[in-house]
Design a protein around this nucleic acid. Sequence first.
DNA 1: ATAGGTTGTCGAAGCGCTTCGATACCGAAT
DNA 2: ATTCGGTATCGAAGCGCTTCGACAACCTAT
Lengths: 337, 337
Amino acid sequence: MVTLAEVAQHAGVSASTVSYVLSGKRSISANTRQRVERSIRELGYHPNAGARALASSRSNIIALMIPLRTDMYVPVMMEIAIAVATAARTHGYDVLLLTGEEGPDAVRRVAGSGLADGMILMDVELDDERLPLLRATDQPSVLIGLPADTTGLTCVDLDFRATGALCVEHLAKQGHQDIAVIGEAPAVYERHTGFAERTLDGLRSRSRELGVRLLHRPCEGGYDAMAVTLARILDERPDTSGIIVQNESAVEPLLALLRQQGRAVPEDVSVVAICPDQVATQASVRLTSVAIPAQEMGRHAVEHLVAKFEGRGSDEVVLLAPELTVRGSTGPAPTRP
Amino acid sequence: MVTLAEVAQHAGVSASTVSYVLSGKRSISANTRQRVERSIRELGYHPNAGARALASSRSNIIALMIPLRTDMYVPVMMEIAIAVATAARTHGYDVLLLTGEEGPDAVRRVAGSGLADGMILMDVELDDERLPLLRATDQPSVLIGLPADTTGLTCVDLDFRATGALCVEHLAKQGHQDIAVIGEAPAVYERHTGFAERTLDGLRSRSRELGVRLLHRPCEGGYDAMAVTLARILDERPDTSGIIVQNESAVEPLLALLRQQGRAVPEDVSVVAICPDQVATQASVRLTSVAIPAQEMGRHAVEHLVAKFEGRGSDEVVLLAPELTVRGSTGPAPTRP
DNA sequence: ATAGGTTGTCGAAGCGCTTCGATACCGAAT
DNA sequence: ATTCGGTATCGAAGCGCTTCGACAACCTAT
């Protein structure tokens, strides 16, 4: 293991000089810099992370807390995680992966040990138990998702209220009067995950404004659950002509069921999905959808966090504007007989 | 930030004593231990990770390198990652998330800086460029996946050869004579990802032994690609009665297409999938499948790595035995007219 | 009673780096 | 010629922890 001191000796300078070459915090003559850089290369020197962290009290690590559950929007989580890791590297940070399992303890542990310089929390619930701690410690952090009370916090999320509104608008504009919403699994609502409730909010208030009828039903993923849910919906509102789905694992079952019942998409029923683009384009029908901008969310989160490290950056809530992409699954409402 | 020294003072002992209470490396009287533990609790002490790493030259961090691509078996990757993180915690380790992006450089960086005590590599290619480096440095590591040359390496993977064999056997036993394999995207084979080729190997050799006809076709995910692939297969081998799918994102499209063509599963066509259980159980038909034991792989990898840290543990290749679960999608071959 | 072992605790020496004066040198301004 | 400000470098003091050797204090076997 090559040390700073060895590099210094090899280059014929003092250790501090090498350190300054590395950090650029003091000016170094071009000549010296080159000699040092050459020695670094020749010896294959890599600064020791622990020593660095100890001396500078900065670890250059960002902790990312992802939910333990693998039952929900997994690809989105993964995409965010990868975006975070990638973005972090471009700023010189590495990412520490924490699972939600430890809950608040993880926050304490990371903040207390100086393991990470700050953290990014995913899957934030409306009244998340990690938040008080986050406010108490001065641990810089960014949430992906929106809790009920955002004071003193920085949050990044898709504007799910607007997303809901956008979906309703799109269908209403095409003349649909009876719209059904197939939501996430009941557990998601019971857990009071913010995004689900906010979407619902947007859906409801916009449909009220536009005077269309809206029926919301939670739904577990999978074919069977979807079959039951769809049957109930059509039973209760036989005139349903527009469906909004916010549950990736219900998308394909829904399409299969509609096909099976002889309901053509989009001639008889229009379908709008809230899901990653990949799901929308790979489905058996190209789906009109509002994408979840996972990459962008990850990147934003990192950039806000890094800004905090550098003293710039304030507490704020960033809601990314939803974009609805029209594909083949929506069209004008059928004229009633 | 509370330090060891402060705890020591508060408890009226020396710093080293506190350290030994924490590590248990020397015996401490029950009395002293309790006083120290009490002080730790009262002061809310957390050992500083950097200082610890520096002094002990152990970071208690495991680096996990996941592929950057999000186009392939994402849920499996995620499940492995979470299993790794969870298992690591039970051994007192945290997980550092590296994306494949940096490639070999990441290996150098991590090994050189002492950032992590060891690493787990996912998505290993047959002739992976990170392997020479891994062999060169004495960085403890475990691969998830199997490269061409495993000398000096520890690997954990599903036994994909046996998996392929198992699928063929199951279908052959039910009288199927013409079996089609819907594989991963062509890019996966071009990249020489080990698991895809090994599966194919197992499929081919077993079908030769059993005297059944096998047709393999790579396939991009999604409905359209699947439609084309299926049409070609049925064109070339109209008597195909068994289908083996190894591409999660082709599963649902395949089922939809079969349904659409009036081919009943399993009466006309039997389908075996190689995919996570979740996919198999949530599909529109309960699928007979060989599961990819993501959790187990992650856990194994961590345990082997930790064993290496502790001096136990040797280089070896662990191939997990596949298990085929019979669900509703396979049955006896139809009798030919 | 004495040598020899245990057991429990302490002090001090680092681990490899950053960072803060201090110092030495230079050219420019007086 | 003298002073000043800037630039380039060095030395030393830590950062908070682990770990080793030393040393009491005590117990046991002679």
